[in-house]
Design a protein around this nucleic acid. Structure first.
Length: 304
DNA sequence: AAAGTCCCCAACCGCTGCATT
DNA sequence: TAATGCAGCGGTTGGGGACTT
């Protein structure tokens, strides 16, 4: 059985909002609130708009303390790190950026950051340009053992992961074929839960527990372990960089800086969000097919 | 200056989860 | 328990300004 439409599409106005409409909506909500019923709101105000449209207009443009304009490098970094961690869950990412809306962050990622990170070129150590290490989406999808279709978000996150790996270990034996990340025998402890206390997301939730770091980081056994990353002395002999520095290079073509990664020794620092989506808690919130990849590279790359 | 193309972003669409009946 | 309605979310679209030819 289909659902009745929330409004009469033939009579509601669509398209850009006029200043008069903005003023009517803003004034009403500031004086009386939304009444927790967006569908009824336009009728009360006298607006010929769909309730969903009113909600969107208020949340994305009219409500107080909305920040418009350029994103700061700190915001760029936050978006990138969270996107790598949790994917395209824009409401959660936006919650970490005061004044930014999920729509803003989504648009900014799709139009600016994604291109800078995944579509750009950078110089290698010999000063020559080359395409980034990741394969194209088609290449990934049509790989020899690539039976599993992946979301665009997962693809992008793998690509970004591989770029970061390449920067860490440009001459090493890192996994240039991302499909190798999807070995079916990779062991990850995943317990499903209808995770009402971990996120306000509509996605299914999975708590990931990593008991033994050594068992969980097979991807990078050959070059780095969590303990090595945590060791200041290792930084003297390797090109270990922080996730922040790597992102800075990808974003702004800056120069990477050797520094100490502060990963907790021997531990993988999984985190997710509390009920309000604000505070990190000790679990991940991934789909099962994406879990192992993030475990692999997150365990090596950084603590979040 | 005009036409074509690209890019950004506000707004819409449709799905999901939750609350209510 | 099932049906229904709503809020919230992420994906997508298209208008219009900016840029290029």
């Amino acid at each position: 059985m289909g659902r009745a439409p929330c409004c009469d599409k033939a009579t509601v106005k669509r398209g850009p909002w006029s200043p008069e409409e903005d003023a009517m909506l803003k004034t009403y909500i500031e004086e009386r609130g939304t009444g927790n019923n967006w569908i009824a709101l336009p009728h009360k105000i006298g607006l010929k708009r769909c309730g969903k449209s009113c909600r969107l207009r208020w949340l994305n443009y009219l409500r107080p303390n909305i920040k418009h304009g350029d994103f700061t490098p700190e915001e760029d970094s936050t978006i990138c790190k969270l996107y790598i961690s949790i994917g395209s869950r824009w409401s959660i990412i936006a919650a970490q950026l005061p004044g930014r809306t999920d729509n803003d962050v989504k648009n900014y990622w799709n139009t600016k950051l994604k291109k800078r990170l995944l579509g750009g070129r950078r110089k290698d150590s010999r000063g020559t340009h080359h395409r980034q290490g990741a394969a194209t989406s088609n290449e990934l999808e049509n790989g020899d053992d690539g039976e599993r279709p992946l979301s665009a978000s997962a693809m992008e996150r793998i690509q970004l992961c591989m770029q970061l790996q390449e920067m860490q270990n440009p001459l090493g034996v890192s996994h240039h074929n991302p499909l190798q990340l999807w070995q079916p025998n990779r062991q990850v402890a995943v317990t499903h839960s209808n995770n009402s206390n971990s996120s306000n997301s509509s996605h299914s939730s999975f708590n990931v527990t990593v008991a033994e770091h050594g068992q969980s980081s097979s991807l990078n056994d050959q070059h780095l372990s969590g303990q090595q990353l945590a060791s200041p002395s290792s930084a003297e002999n390797s090109n270990v960089v922080t996730i922040e520095a790597e992102l800075q290079e990808l974003l702004y073509s800056g120069t990477t800086t050797d520094s100490v990664v502060t990963t907790q020794q021997g531990e993988v620092d999984w985190w997710s969000y509390d009920q309000q989506g604000k505070s990190p808690v000790n679990c991940w919130d991934f789909t099962p097919e994406t879990t192992s990849v993030y475990q692999d590279y997150t365990s090596v790359m950084y603590d979040m």
